[in-house]
């Protein structure tokens, strides 16, 4: 996996295992639901890897979309991440769950793309992303309530996008995508205390950004 290590400015912890970065010991993986498919894929079974793709493509897309915005580029990154994973599957040692390894590849590829296209385009993507996709799912609510919720949702989304990458990813993985702390920390190759610290700082920033919309008298 050393060959997959990619520079991630502001995201030192995302180097792939063995890439010469500070070592973070991951918890032993007792049960990885993907273990059987991974073993078959490592033996060259393409159908097994395709099953892994079908199992994880949507989730990986969601994470990458939070980093790059929804669109063709996100889809390209997801495809590239799976292709890299397939080419490197024999080097996956099972010291983390397969999906955390896959997410690392996807996140590193996302950051590499963001660097390639430059900050201007990233800002554009962020703006476009924040302005789209704010449908309210509960159609039974009064228009005023719907409008308030839509505004809050929009503000939350923008606040997430405004976070620096090293704070945004913990929030995306833990609070939006619903990974456990242990899983999200493993994706970022952080110890849990360091991960929790970043998550807390990220939440505080987002809370501050939306304070005017969520209640009176908040600190």
């Amino acid at each position: 996996m050393t060959g997959l290590a990619l520079p991630v400015p502001g995201f030192e912890s995302l180097a792939m295992p063995g890439a010469g970065r500070a070592a973070v010991s991951l918890r032993p993986v007792k049960e990885d639901p993907d273990a059987g498919l991974v073993k078959r894929a490592q033996a060259g079974d393409e159908a097994a890897f395709e099953a892994l793709v079908r199992r994880h493509a949507d989730s990986l897309y969601s994470v990458v979309a939070r980093l790059l915005g929804r669109g063709e580029e996100t889809e390209e990154v997801v495809q590239e991440a799976f292709i890299r994973a397939w080419r490197s599957i024999d080097r996956f040692k099972g010291d983390a769950k397969f999906f955390t390894w896959l997410y690392r590849i996807g996140v590193n590829e996302s950051r590499r793309r963001a660097e390639q296209v430059g900050r201007h385009r990233e800002r554009t993507a962020r703006s476009i992303n924040a302005d789209s996709g704010f449908e309210i799912s509960d159609s039974s609510q009064a228009p005023g309530v719907k409008a308030e919720q839509a505004e809050l949702r929009r503000a939350l989304k923008q606040a997430v996008l405004d976070l620096p990458p090293d704070l945004r990813l913990p929030l995306v993985l833990r609070d939006i995508e619903g990974l456990s702390t242990a899983e999200a920390a493993a994706v970022m190759e952080l110890g849990e205390p360091a991960f929790k610290s970043r998550l807390h700082r990220a939440r505080l920033r987002v809370r501050k950004s939306i304070a005017g919309l969520t209640g009176k008298g908040e600190e």
Binding site: R70, R153, D175, R207, E219
Partner: peptide, 17 residues
Amino acid sequence: ALRRTVSGLGGLREPPP
């Protein structure tokens, strides 16, 4: 406030294409 923030964040998940 943090509880409301985290609750709101949980609602941001969108289905992929």
